[in-house]
Design a binder for these strands. Sequence first.
DNA 1: CCACAGGACGGCT
DNA 2: AGCCGTCCTGTG
Length: 290
Amino acid sequence: MKLEEKNYKIPNCNTFELKDIFECGQCFRWNEQIDGSYIGVVKNNVIKVKKEGQDVTFQSVGEDNLQELVTNYFDFQTDYEKIKQTLSNIDENMKTSISYGKGIRILNQDLWETIISFIISANNNIPRIKGIIERISKAYGKEIVFENKSYYTFPTSSELSKASIADLRSLGLGFRDVRVYETTKMIQTKQVDLEKLKQEKDFEVVRNTLLTLPGVGPKVADCILLFSSLKRWEAFPIDVWVRRVMNELYIKKPDETKVKKEEIQKIAHEKFGPLAGIAQQYLFYWKREA
DNA sequence: CCACAGGACGGCT
DNA sequence: AGCCGTCCTGTG
């Protein structure tokens, strides 16, 4: 099947910087091109994003209507100027971090893909995580050709369930092979039903359900809540970097003090309320890049 | 050779 | 309930 190429353009796009969006640690399938644009795979589409002046252009091949896809995935229904305004008023740290990552947007990524991606992220670094996800997609996803190059969709749970533990190990997952294997089974058999989970309103119920999946601990669960279409901005993932930032800026104690996660969570919610997760992203990106 | 990288898990106190 | 060693792999 030959897929038609599509185009879409958004003019005067102020809160949208490619680097801020794609390098802030929320996604793994976007790669910078020589011309500064980024190419990524979203659902069954390959998308190329470019920013020229204040205009953002999208090109794609794939199943979906590009405008609808982009609007949802890049969260254009959300007013980030307003969010930045609200957070900037909290304190100087937020003001500084926001001016640093002014083009960040929290993506609405596919829930299933986000679960597997962040299980793989455990005790791992970004280049290797990206490589593993790339190899999984190539082995079990579907090919899409874009500008004479092959790209691969992230496999569905049904597609990935064809992989044995040994298959996963050979793709470089290391000790995460069993975790991905078992979580895939649980989701594919609807022991954990992701469609039902999306309907669930109660934050703790959703979080506790995610925590039943092998390989999903507190940090991974919060990443899934924040970076997937679950879209829970109150989730506040705490990794070593966020711990460092919070210790330095708000707790004002040396890092080796080992303040409890629950304590950090509490402080975050007192400070940032329901926007804690977004605040975390600005702080994290600022301190990690700087 | 060892430390470390954006954690989770199981066994031990 | 909390602490701590271990888990695969690549890089410095």
